[in-house]
């Protein structure tokens, strides 16, 4: 049976605010799943807490709506136990880079073959618009009593530094481009990260859709004025082709430098990709040769209610 886009949609009422950037992300994710033809029961969407956390309920695959900041832990456990399934974790920037920042960094070190998408809007929407980790120092969004006193986290830079092997940025109002990025991220062998710029129309009145579109810049110039541009339209080459230290360091550095670009020009697309780093499953098969053929979720542990694990050698070694 060929799966259509509609097959990936649930009939759960979507209660996001009108015009929310999240719609573009959930659509792009559904389109990507349909394009890749991933069976509904062979994919699990894990989500964090907040507006973005509801994503898993809108997608007609397995959906696990977890805890604030902890989505990567649940997702990694699921993928490790059942490596055959496609795993996508989603969450907000407060979720992943505030309360969950420790898990973000640790996940990079493991490089488990799955995808993490951050809905990056600079505010904690569901709790009425407090400043989130990606909001810049000194900026004052609608519900802040005073300008933001914290500097921002650089999600792309942090991902690159933490060991993510695919690092990209999308824009939630460019759904086709975002869909392409999600397909690339899911197909990537290793841990992929997508930072999705996602205007919050209700609480972030600084980084709005118009702002990303450069409407303010347009008043000064008649030329193309969108702040967003695509790296693939430039000479930027994000891919590590050889495992050599020099090339790897060069690609990591240029990704980091690129990630600092902000203001009038904001890059999207792939910042860094390195498939030469061993995915975690390879590190496991190095010591457990049949891990992928016989992973935890597939193992038969009993025979008619009786355990089939034979520990007699261990027990005999304990004999007095």
């Amino acid at each position: 049976m060929v799966l259509k886009l509609a097959d990936y949609k649930t009939d759960v009422h979507n209660d996001w605010c009108p015009g929310c950037g999240d719609f573009g992300i959930v659509n792009a994710l559904q389109m990507a799943l349909a394009e890749m033809g991933i069976e509904r029961d062979k994919a699990t969407i894990f989500s964090g807490i907040g507006c973005s956390g509801k994503t898993s309920h809108f997608i007609n695959t397995y959906g696990v709506h977890t805890l604030h900041g902890r989505v990567l832990t649940f997702a990694q456990g699921g993928k490790l136990a059942n490596p055959d399934m496609t795993v996508v974790a989603v969450g907000g920037d407060g979720d992943g880079l505030g309360i969950g920042a420790g898990h973000f960094v640790a996940a990079g070190r493991r490089n488990i073959d799955m995808t993490y998408i951050i809905f990056d809007n600079g505010v904690y929407g569901l709790t009425k618009g407090q400043a989130s980790p990606t909001l810049k120092l000194g900026e004052q969004t609608k519900s802040l009593p005073s300008p933001n006193t914290n500097s921002n986290v650089n999600p792309i830079g942090l991902a690159v530094a933490s060991g993510f092997t695919f690092v990209a940025r999308g824009y939630s109002y460019d759904v086709r481009h975002l869909k392409d990025l999600i397909v690339k991220a899911v197909k990537h062998k290793g841990l992929s990260f997508l930072d999705v710029l996602q205007p919050c129309p209700t609480y972030n009145d600084v980084n709005t859709r118009d702002w990303y579109a450069g409407v303010d810049l347009a008043q000064e110039s008649m030329e193309r004025h969108s702040r967003i541009y695509k790296l693939e339209d430039t000479k930027f080459d994000p891919t590590v082709n050889y495992a050599g230290e020099v090339e790897v360091n060069e690609k990591l550095s240029q990704a980091l430098i690129k990630s600092l670009e902000w203001g009038d020009k904001i890059p999207t697309g792939v910042f860094y990709q390195n498939e030469l780093v061993s995915p975690f499953s390879t590190r496991l098969t190095d010591k457990i040769p049949n891990y992928l053929e016989n992973p935890p979720a597939k193992q038969i542990i009993s025979n008619a209610g009786s355990p089939n694990t034979d520990i007699s050698k261990i027990l005999d070694s304990l004999d007095v």
């Binding site: 990567l72 649940f74 456990g77 136990a81 420790g102 935890p296 979720a297």
Partner: peptide
Amino acid sequence: EDEISAIGMMIGASLTGTRS
């Protein structure tokens, strides 16, 4: 990386039917 991750991973693994 911490005990929060330990229980999160265990739950994720258990959801796949694995005794965790």
